[in-house]
Design a protein around this nucleic acid. Structure first.
Lengths: 127, 127
DNA sequence: TTGCATCTACGAATAGATTCGTATATTTGA
DNA sequence: TCAAATATACGAATCTATTCGTAGATGCAA
């Protein structure tokens, strides 16, 4: 039971996980200051969210000092993996190829990006 | 206001849209029978969901007969586009390439799929 | 025609996510 | 030392999604 559920964070939780994945250890205030740039919510909202994430096992914290230090407990790539899979099934009827086309058509990829994807495809073909 | 919101259906709504996109015009029962295969919910649950989707403008219906006929109002590709974009931003920090790698690494793509993706990439490169 | 099957409408319960106010504790600087 | 700033804890309001029960209308078959 401790696993599958943790890979399906809510949107708000994902925003917080992004920050923790990127910056590593953070206080609530650290996280809140980043969030504030894009949305406006109160400090206690961020705090509450992170407390809930603690209960769910999405994060851990060091509570030895007054100001607690949080870190992500769930793996970034596994979480991404899980979410992409879900999207392929729910949105693209199981076709990874169709998802990829959409992703490419939309987010105009740079030549470097395209080349690195090609390289990756070649590796897949040669296996 | 009539647009962006409609591209962000909930999970249940997406399941129903998938069916409507695939089959075209459907009664509630048509949709319900497909849904029943994978989940178990009552008929009136499906009905209610589709009524809500009507209010939101996700679907339209012909109510001239006793049994109403529904069809999708939102465009499949635009919806997919929107959801992929959101995932690239929220989950992959804006990198389409990283999403694609995950999609490929995971859902073992067939050789045909890989080839069609390569072809697509070549077309992108030559523009 | 009459009763059964099927349909829609709609209110309401439930569950989860999100938000915030308030109480309380701790630190720190004047 | 003491007041202001800053933290956490926690209950509760709100909002949205999902589910279902029940009532009432309609069509159809015997």
């Amino acid at each position: 039971m401790t696993g599958a559920a943790n890979l399906k964070p809510t949107e708000s939780e994902l925003e917080i996980l992004q920050i923790l994945w990127k910056k590593g250890n953070c206080t609530v205030r650290d996280v809140h200051e980043v969030l504030e740039k894009n949305k406006d919510a109160g400090y206690t909202t961020t705090l509450k969210l992170m407390q809930i994430m603690l209960e769910k096992g999405l994060v851990a914290r060091d509570a030895s000092a007054k100001t607690h230090i949080y870190r992500a407990l769930v793996n970034q790539e596994k979480t991404q993996q899980h979410l992409v899979n879900k999207m392929i099934d729910n949105v693209f009827n199981g076709s990874a190829a169709r998802l990829i086309m959409q992703a490419l058509g939309n987010h105009t990829a740079s030549k470097d990006e395209i080349n690195s994807i090609k390289k990756y495809l070649d590796e897949l073909s040669n296996q």
